[in-house]
Design a protein around this nucleic acid. Structure first.
Lengths: 333, 333
DNA sequence: TTGTAAGCGTTATCAT
DNA sequence: ATGATAACGCTTACAA
């Protein structure tokens, strides 16, 4: 009735439990005959090893957590995050590891998240959408499970991260707008407590400076459609002729606001987004966007974590990996 | 150095391990003094119980799986699925359960998925995007962990599911198109092995019949942007004056194709989608769409599963829950 | 090659 | 109320 155990398999095969274990795992000696009988018995009984018992004995869970600490659940609709989820799940597909998606919010009881980060629950973790200010992040940082960050963590430094060159993201977007003749270039930024937001904004500001243009206003809002829409509303009085928007999803919101005001996107106001998402391609007008390659980043993060888990490397063996973004030109900017 | 165990806590508090266990869990007697000393010791050491050991002893993992068996990873970008992920994670937030996102593909080694579905790994599972034809689904069905389906499973019936009334989805969409004067109404459907697709298509067909109109052509494709785009290309020779598209994401693809052919969406060809997603609201033209309330469905599925897990109810105590969809009228149809 | 036995870190049952 | 002690189901020395 209930799940068969290794003892059941061993009994059915007429061997000891340890022999059955070796025969199934392949670790340690096992005669061909025993091997065959044990495998047959396991198949006949529909045996699947109890993962809790296995983890307890081996101190390995063969699970990794993909941790997304997000104050605003709507952010999960962001193509970058879904890209991270898909990419990470892809990256571990060929491995023995199972990926657990852990979504945390700052107002959650920290104990629950901490339980997930117990070294016997997951062997490692990939942390995305890291907010420097969260209490959760400080707590999680203490936990002894190996962690790789997607997006440079901030303010506490580490080698264990992969990131896109966000300074360059801001530069590419802004330079394009300058070259198209824009002179009043505003910025719709993400939350102020993220390193990526800080760097993209710095890139925007410095490129304007180099071009001898005054920096337009900056607004910070969550990486959502609504965030972009309200941010654009706030910026309208400035009468910008271009806006660097730090995500395509926000750009979609900003464009919606502009259209509601009858403003011609791509002519009166140019827009450049970030992510080069599906949405950017199918928007009207199609959105000029700077890449933020989730698939690439998640593959790198996965490999980096696997080096720590399977190759016994340490944080000192690893150097951060920085990917260069690319500007994809379409009609909006 | 390594994670402290209950023995360490007990030693520090000067009590036996069993006393420490009772003091922390609250189950069983414990004097106020012992309680205090144990709690203090646990806090001082930063003790977190080893989940594997706990699971092994209690036969409860306090984890539930959200299983998405998807042949096509791109489908994860679908707002309905992200809505399910968000909604499920929300629904279990206030509980002791941790949600594991499990993405499976038909060509995966079935063993890996089966390991996840071991009764000691998860206490229960919510299954979405169920494809009737998958080998994986048949295997998973055997596993003894309680499963609640979002979307009526097919072909094997069960009481343990929540769903939107998909027959009505097709009816509402098609009736709207008929009332707007459309006469050549085609259908862009999802994969043919899903119950929802079958029912939505049946609703479309029957409503056309009731209106005395001939059924236009049906095409089946994956629930993706690209799927919708190519489906629309195939339908163009029929010269439809309206299309019922079974997801907003596919509708986005279909609209893109129409615009590339210079066809006026909302006048020459009317479109009604399904999901009432963010995208539908911000599309241009805004997309008329039938609701497919992911938040509602995931909350119901979670409650249904909790009845099985926490209230000792059985499949016989539970009846399916069917939610009625609503038509949201915008400019496209 | 195989079997015996000792953990892994909890909870739960039983005396005390 | 508390403390031994036996599970839980597996892996892994160590003996045979």
């Amino acid at each position: 009735m209930s799940q068969p155990t290794l003892d059941d398999v061993a009994a059915a095969a007429g061997v000891a439990r340890s022999t059955a274990s070796r025969a199934l795992s392949g670790a340690g000696p096992a005669s061909a005959g025993a091997q065959a009988r044990v495998r047959a018995a396991a198949a006949a009984l529909g045996f699947t090893p109890n993962p809790a018992a296995r983890t307890l004995a081996t101190r390995r869970s063969y699970a990794v957590a993909l941790v997304i600490p997000e104050p605003n659940v709507l952010v999960l609709g962001d193509p970058f995050l879904t890209g991270m989820i898909i990419g990470t799940s892809e990256a571990f597909r060929a491995t023995d590891y199972q990926v657990l998606l852990v979504i945390v919010r700052p107002d959650d009881e920290p104990g629950k998240a901490l339980r997930v980060m117990h070294p016997s629950h997951v062997d490692g973790a990939i942390m995305v959408s890291h907010h420097g200010s969260g209490a959760f992040e400080r707590v999680i940082r203490q936990s002894p499970v190996p962690k790789v960050y997607v997006g440079r963590p901030w303010p506490d430094p580490t080698n264990l991260y992969v990131d896109v060159n966000n300074r360059l993201v801001g530069d590419l977007a802004t330079r394009r707008l300058v070259e198209r003749g824009a002179r009043r270039i505003a910025c719709i930024a993400g939350p102020a407590d993220m390193a990526a937001v800080h760097d993209r904004t710095a890139g925007w500001r410095e490129t304007l400076q180099d071009a001898g243009l005054p920096p337009g206003p900056v607004t910070h809002s969550p990486f959502t459609l609504a965030g972009g829409a309200t941010a654009m509303t706030e910026l309208l009085p400035y009468r910008p002729d271009a806006v660097f928007v730090q995500s395509d999803l926000m750009a979609a919101g900003a464009i919606k606001t502009l259209e509601e005001h009858g403003i011609d996107v791509g002519r009166t106001v140019r827009i450049v987004g970030v992510d080069d998402s599906d949405f950017a391609r199918s928007a009207s007008p199609p959105l000029t966007s700077v890449t933020n390659p989730a698939a690439n980043l998640s593959a790198r993060a996965a490999r980096m974590l696997l080096r720590l888990l399977d190759d016994n490397e340490t944080a000192n063996d690893v150097r951060p990996e920085i990917v260069d973004p690319v500007l994809v030109i379409r009609d909006s900017g």
